[in-house]
Design a protein around this nucleic acid. Structure first.
Lengths: 234, 234
DNA sequence: ATTTTTGTTAATGTAAGGTTAAAAGGAAGA
DNA sequence: TCTTCCTTTTAACCTTACATTAACAAAAAT
């Protein structure tokens, strides 16, 4: 049926609950790595590729949100589910802001959790068809290495890009010659779509245009009300 | 900022709760269509394009799941959120089976609902893959790319089209050589059919005629009181 | 003949985008 | 803790793009 088991990073400080949950997930054919606190969670996250992270919110030293933010810096795509102790509205809202995919209030029904896991992993699987592991792009006479965050012109000295510059250019490159919808960048990179994030994005477009000026064949065009288009003229 | 408000189909039989929820959503910048039962819900669904459906599970005659199934047959992509009366595990599981994107237990916090709506709509926006072919038309010696909103004559320099110009020309092209009813354009593009939108449309017809003048074989004819017809003479 | 519908151009108001600079945040080091 | 450097956001100001409305002319229908 499935060649490889899906891998879940479970970060939960309560040892009893944690191990029970881990066993339950393993019984349901997931490969589970259990970290007992935020620090350990991040270490394990860096070492491996996971299909899903389940993070407890209430943890000593490093709470789930802080951990989520660190994870997001490394990887903008991994699905994250939060386990919140109670129906803390603030927690839920905060969760979505760091890019959570879902949350569950403890105590929760384990079957429901399984269902959510399945739904989320499937969702990601369908999303991740084209833009999978692409981090290197040729943009006219430029080379973008978006893993190391630099841009080289004609193989010369690389210019360092800030995280936002890098993500934005990468997204544009992924849609080369095609529309890169505003909304897409805002939700993927800024994780929020409002007036200010939108203006912020415009500022970054200006920055990128400045970098790209070196090659007059490369330009970022605007499609009013829709988004931007990175075109390479021949 | 907002090109168009996102459209929500709300199917909820409790009139009090339904209207309150509708008003609340409308206050938050969504365009809401409220149906009072499953049958009505499906009718309205067929008539319009929605960005999201919020379905009450417990409804007389046709429950939320049945409705969801019918909706899914028509459209595999619209996000669906279920409102379940209590933490009915069966309901939740059943919901996911019909392809729900999320569910909420009543009573729920309205801000949390907003958050979910936002998250889900954004998620779907992200998935929008480039299904190009539907956006490219050959109109005489012109090429219309209605995704990138430009019109090329004889493969020369593309002319940019405004959103309304583009949509209108696209509709005409879809009905090439055939009647494109006035009303159709008004409801689909202007989303309102009155004296002013009608005059506005005439203005756009004039603009399109100006663009299309380059190819004397292409013209937009008026059918008095009915609509317009894009004809390509041979 | 006159009312309604359409053709066309121009004027107006608003929203979106371009650009630059200043302010605010945040992390690393002193 | 304070300082410094880098990144990001916010603000300000300006330009361009769009859609609507008005105004007047021409066709078509009654």
């Amino acid at each position: 049926m499935e060649e490889f088991k899906k891998r879940i990073l479970l970060v939960e400080d309560d040892p009893n609950f944690g191990t029970v949950l881990k066993d339950y997930l393993m019984m349901n054919d997931y490969e589970v790595t259990h970290a007992k606190n935020g620090m350990e969670g991040f270490e394990k996250f860096k070492k491996d590729d996971f299909d899903l992270c389940i993070l407890d919110v209430m943890m000593p030293y490093k709470d789930g949100f802080t951990l989520a933010k660190e994870i997001r810096e490394k990887n903008t795509d991994v699905p994250i589910i939060f386990l919140t102790a109670k129906t803390m509205k603030e927690d839920v809202l905060k969760g979505y802001k760091v890019g959570a995919d879902d949350y569950l209030n403890k105590p929760f029904d384990s079957e429901v959790l399984l269902m959510k896991i399945k739904a989320i992993i499937q969702r990601k699987a369908t999303e991740t068809i084209s833009d999978s592991k692409q981090f290197e792009f040729k943009i006219g006479r430029f080379d973008l290495n978006s893993k190391l965050r630099f841009l080289k012109f004609d193989g010369g000295e690389p210019v360092k890009l800030s995280p936002k510059e890098n993500e934005l250019l990468r997204l544009l490159a992924l849609h080369e010659n095609d529309l890169m919808p505003r909304e897409l960048a805002l939700t993927k990179i800024w994780r929020d779509d409002n007036y200010f994030t939108s203006r912020s994005m415009d500022v970054y477009i200006a920055k990128l245009r400045k970098y790209l000026k070196l090659d007059e064949k490369v330009e970022i065009l605007n499609i009013h009300g829709e988004g931007f288009r990175l075109v390479i003229n021949s």
